[in-house]
């Protein structure tokens, strides 16, 4: 054993871990090695990440957001699809094309996890694996997911998928495996390292910029201003789940 003076940050962290293993002693860890707030990547309770999808800018024949998500998070590969029924295929994000039944107008938009403020999937999860981060991102902690699929029953948006077969060669930033539930996590690893979600990047690159990403809690952010200035809708607004993903021109 090393002597006390040589103990590293991990030992300091461990003392924090000892107090509670699942939810860690707040604040202990970062304070231990000084303030580097600007560089730190803790999910910030002062923020709420969200998306505003402008259906009028979304091209029906473009699938770039879905492709980017597949590449980033490593789902839906040929090897994976060969093992499963099409109905069992994962769908973190999907494109839908809709026709207004009264006017006949057609629109197209991506649908992913809506990152609700009051997520039913989090309420129903027996173990707490389905969770909402401080910054509003809803995701599955696959370490304690038992694969009961109750969250999939509860989600009004069909945003979640169950991994039906063994997965190999995952991306390092997107662990996923047989027997657990998964869904869009707004590219949390990218956000934590100061990057925008893959679908947002892809949509901008494709020249559509139909997905606006930003902090819903910041009144000066572009997304907040846009939500103030234009009509927008939440999917299944009747359920009052206050989703972090909104749609305009739908």
């Amino acid at each position: 054993m090393t002597n006390r003076a040589e103990m590293t940050r991990r030992d300091i962290l461990k003392s924090g871990a000892a107090a509670s293993t699942l939810t860690l002693a707040p604040g202990v860890t970062l304070m231990a090695f000084g303030g580097t707030a600007e560089a730190s990547s803790r999910a910030d309770a002062g923020k709420r990440w969200g998306l505003l999808i402008d259906a009028s800018k979304c091209a029906a024949d473009c699938n770039d957001c879905v492709t980017a998500c597949k590449v980033e998070n490593g789902w839906g590969s040929q090897t994976e699809l060969e093992q499963i029924d099409p109905e069992q295929a994962p769908e973190w994000i999907r494109k839908v094309t809709l026709r207004d039944t009264s006017t006949g107008r057609e629109v197209s938009a991506p649908v992913m996890c809506q990152h609700c403020e009051a997520p039913p999937c989090v309420d129903v999860c027996p173990t707490g694996a389905s969770m909402k981060r401080e910054d509003g991102i809803v995701l599955v902690d696959k370490h304690i997911c038992i694969g009961c699929r109750y969250c999939m029953m509860a989600c009004p948006f069909k945003a979640r998928s169950f991994v039906h077969a063994e997965i190999t060669d995952q991306n390092v930033q997107a662990p996923r495996g047989k027997g657990t539930v998964e869904s869009c996590n707004l590219c949390a690893p990218r956000i934590d390292s100061g990057r925008i979600p893959a679908c947002v990047e892809a949509c901008e690159k494709a020249g559509h910029s139909a997905i606006l990403f930003g902090d819903l809690k910041d009144p000066d952010s572009a997304i907040s201003k846009a939500l103030n200035d234009y009509d927008s809708v939440a999917l299944r607004a009747d359920l009052e789940l206050d989703p972090g993903v909104r749609y305009t021109n739908l």
């Binding site: 129903v124 997911c145 991994v163």
Partner: peptide
């Protein structure tokens, strides 16, 4: 129910980690 779980091997998690807003729990 237990044997149908995606991760039946994690039954211990279901028995030790509770989310009390869940009817399931």
């Amino acid at each position: 129910v237990v044997l149908d779980l995606g991760r039946a091997d994690r039954l211990i998690v279901a028995m030790t980690t509770y989310n009390f807003s869940s009817v399931f729990a």
